Amino acid sequence: MAVFTITAFTLNLFTQKDKLSHKQTIALICIGVFLTLTKSVNALLLFPLLFLPKRLFSPNKNERLPFNIQKWAILVVTGIAAIISILIWQKIYGQPLLTTGAAHNPLHSNPLKFITILFNTYISPTIGYTDTVLRGSVGEFSSFKYHLPLFILIPLFSLLFLSLLHYNKKDQELLGEQTGKLAVYNLATIGLFVCAVSYAMYTAWALLPFRFGEGAYYADGVQGRYFTATAVMLVPVGLWLQKYINVRTKNEKVFNLIMFFGLALILSFYIFETVWTYK
C-alpha cells in the first residue's frame, strides 16, 4: 500500500498544473514518514520527488539562486521527518537499522564486488537464483514450499507487459512531456531499491555462518515479493514506450475482459495451489 500511495502521489504531482498546496505539503511529509516506518528501504521511493517540476513551487525572490528554496525546504523537512521516525522506531524496539551476519563485510574492502553480487543474484544462468526471484514475485506471498510454475509466470508477465503497452490517449496527454522524465526517474528508483535490498540481504543474511559466511557470492535471502509492489512504478515507462510500440484495440471492453479473466485465472490457480500445498 505504501508503494502505491507514493507512486500515485508522485504521478499526480508531475501532472499537476497548480502550485503545491499546504495540504499536499503536509501529505508529502506524512507519506515520507509512513514509507519509512513500513520499511526503511522504502524511503528510496521518494527519489523521484527530487525532480518535481518548478511550476509546483513559488519562484525565488532572488532569481540568481540555481535551486528553488521552497522545493528543497519541503524535501529537506520530509527527509528529516523520515530520519527522525527511523530513530524513534529504533529507540522503541531497540533494533539496529541493519544487522550484519559476519564480523567483516567483504564489500567494505572491495565495493566493486557488489557488481558481481548483483550479477550472480539476478542474471547469472549458472547459479539459478534468478528463477527463484522471478517465481517468488508472486508465489512467496503465502508459501515458501512452492513457486509459481513457468506456464503461469509467462501469461502473468505477458499480461503485465500488455497492460503497459496498451495505448491510452488520455494518459498520454495527461503526462505530456513529463512522461520520458518520470520514466527515467522511476527506473532509477527501482534500480536503487533493488541495490539497497540486495545489499541488506547480502549483509544481514548471506554472510551468516550457517549460510555462506564471508564467501557469499550472491544476495541469498532476496525474495521476489520484495519488488512486486514496485511494478506500479513502471506505468510511466509503459506510457513512454507507447510512443514507439503500442497495442491498440477497437473495443476497450474486450481488452479489459481479457485482462480481468486472465488475472482471475492466475489468482485462482494461486489460491488452489496454496490450499493444495497445505491440505
Rank of each mutant, 00 (worst) to 15 (best):
L45R: 03
L97T: 13
N120G: 05
H104N: 14
L50I: 13
K39A: 00
K61T: 10
Q16P: 04
G101V: 00
A43C: 11
F57L: 09
T36D: 12
L28S: 03
I123V: 12
D18G: 06
N120Y: 13
W72N: 05
T38E: 08
F67H: 05
V76M: 12
T121Q: 10
C30G: 13
L65G: 08
E63M: 10
H22L: 15
K113C: 11
L52E: 00
L112A: 08
F67Q: 07
F47Y: 15
H22N: 14
F4S: 08
L46Q: 02
K23I: 11
H108K: 06
F47K: 07
L87M: 15
V76L: 08
L49H: 05
K39F: 09
Y122T: 03
I84L: 14
I86Y: 14
L87A: 13
K17H: 08
P66N: 04
G79E: 08
Q70S: 10
L107I: 02
S21N: 06
Y122A: 01
F4Y: 10
P53E: 12
N68I: 07
W89H: 05
L28I: 01
L52V: 01
H22C: 09
T36P: 15
S109Y: 01
D18A: 05
S58N: 08
K91R: 13
A103H: 02
N110L: 08
P96R: 02
I31M: 00
P59D: 09
I84F: 15
T10A: 07
Q24S: 08
V41C: 07
F119N: 01
V76Y: 09
A8M: 01
I83A: 15
L65V: 05
C30R: 15
S109P: 04
N68K: 04
N12D: 06
L28Y: 10
T99Y: 14
A81N: 02
V33E: 01
S124G: 10
L45P: 15
N12H: 06
F47A: 14
P48M: 14
K23T: 15
G32Q: 06
C30Y: 07
P66V: 01
K54Y: 11
W89N: 10
W72S: 03
C30F: 09
G101Y: 00
